[in-house]
Design a protein around this nucleic acid. Structure first.
Lengths: 199, 199
DNA sequence: GCTAAACTGGCACGAACGTACCACTTTGCG
DNA sequence: CGCAAAGTGGTACGTTCGTGCCAGTTTAGC
């Protein structure tokens, strides 16, 4: 819905959201962090101007001053959340291995994961968010490829990613017994490793 | 949040949602159908009392008369949507086979799938919806098991379901090229068929 | 130091929401 | 038939939302 997203080009009159030139940049960052926090707590329904401003100890108007709209605020929060998630997942996998992923899911804050997936699905209705969702998927695929020392375009990597993400979502939403997920995860990884190279 | 959900027990005073005894049952069904329709069109944010009543050509109060709350309306709409989806998917698969699933996804109404998944993720925050979500998953697993002539508890079936659902969600949200999904789907099915029986 | 621009913050508007209320009509049953 | 229960529909209340507005304050550049 937003045809422009060029922050360096300051020619925007109706939506003058040029990056701050003072300590106001801290305020913007604070607002964004608050939005992320609320997003991980109560889903994107909880990310309102008022809630964000209140959590950041800032007046209500600050949110409309630094962000053109609620959609933009949500998009940036989603992007930041995805970025954080990617680095967290990467370090976890390099430290503990792929098959320990279920434990990370079980360990991590469940509402956080829910917020992430909520926004992921919502991305299906918003082209801007869709781009971020694709970036999330690509990031995960890259992590798996690096871990297995395979190419990102390898079909096995692609398939393994798909399976893992589904296991993840399923675990978060349905809260089935953890053993089941662990078994399936191990099976998926082994299957991917033993599969033939792509044709 | 709702400690009661016993429709046969009519002792409910504050929420007297006893099933209608007259042609009002049609009205209730109409409202529910409208809720489902709105759900598939604009996500569950579009399912408001007013929108449902208007779409059903009924007064606003009818929604609160037949449904205790918006949450209940949403839950019933979700349940009905899942049921419809399950039968549709089953007939499609028996007619065209598992590997043609991507084409069904591509063919079917995209916003409908989005609404389904939106509600699925939302089920992570609501125990009532979570039950319906589990039922959806179990239904899909059963379809796959029947198709492959395997047991529902077979690990291969379980894993294949997981992969298929992820492919489905991914396709709906990210709208990647269809060929990719087709390839992955075929690979997943073949892998599941050739895999060893569960230990 | 002075002026314009950037920033701040309190407030209000209009819209949409869930839900309660209540007079009215229809219906099932003794 | 008569009457209580079920159903009906218009309306209103209280809340919350996104966002616009604008007088005041701070800051940057000349």
């Amino acid at each position: 819905m937003n045809p422009d997203q060029n922050p360096t080009q300051a020619g925007e009159r109706p939506q003058p959201h040029p990056p701050t030139q003072a300590r106001g940049r801290r305020r913007r960052a604070t607002l964004l962090a608050s939005a992320v926090h609320l997003l991980t707590q109560g889903g994107f329904a909880a990310v309102t101007h008022r809630a964000v401003a209140h959590h950041a100890n800032l007046p209500l108007a600050a949110t409309t001053y630094y962000f053109a709209s609620r959609d933009q605020l949500l998009a940036e929060a989603f992007a930041q959340l995805v970025e954080t998630e990617l680095t967290t997942t990467r370090t976890w996998i390099t430290d503990h291995g792929l098959t320990a992923l279920t434990d990370q899911i079980a360990t991590a804050d469940r509402t956080r994961q829910l917020g992430l997936w909520e926004l992921y699905v919502h991305a299906g209705r918003d082209p801007v968010l869709q781009q971020i969702a694709r970036r999330w998927a690509d990031g995960c695929i890259r992590i798996i490829a690096d871990t297995l020392h395979l190419s990102e375009t390898d079909t096995r990597v692609r398939l393994l990613y798909t399976t893992l993400s589904a296991l993840w979502l399923e675990q978060v939403v349905e809260q089935r017994p953890l053993d089941e997920a662990r078994t399936l995860l191990a099976l998926a990884v082994k299957t991917a490793e033993n599969a033939l190279p792509p044709p």
